[in-house]
């Protein structure tokens, strides 16, 4: 089961500079585990521990076939062969 994953510039240190990599998994969570097996450390940049449960980092956006996974169940969003996943860090900031 091959899923094309687009990697943003800031995370290409984990993929030897590759703009996209292949992964597999039936859910986003499984895909991220699979990616971390081949690109150790990348998982920690995508998810964080939120009061005992693992969730996507607030300022990381993940899209499956152009839809924000936050509207598709987050880490439990389902994946199928041939899906395209895009990872984009939020563009955000401010005086705070």
């Amino acid at each position: 089961m091959a899923i094309d994953v687009r990697i943003p510039t800031i995370l290409r240190t984990y993929t030897d500079g590759a703009k996209s990599v292949e992964g597999s998994g039936g859910t986003l969570s499984a895909l991220i585990d699979d990616l971390d097996g081949n690109h150790p450390g990348i998982k920690d940049r995508l998810v964080e521990d939120k009061s005992g449960s693992i969730d996507l980092r607030r300022f990381v956006n993940v899209y499956i076939n152009d839809e924000d996974v936050r509207f598709m169940g987050g880490l439990e969003a389902e994946l199928a062969d041939g899906d395209q996943v895009v990872v984009l860090p939020a563009v955000a900031g401010g005086a705070g």
Partner: peptide, 29 residues
């Protein structure tokens, strides 16, 4: 293309990156 410039305004403070700006900056180029 790539984002050559990423701009934003501060409306009550100086034009210097805040801790939030620094923490969230994710385009090294």
């Amino acid at each position: 293309e790539e984002p050559v410039v990423i701009y934003h305004s501060h409306t009550a403070t100086e034009a210097y990156p805040s801790r939030t700006d620094i923490g969230l900056a994710s385009e090294p180029n």
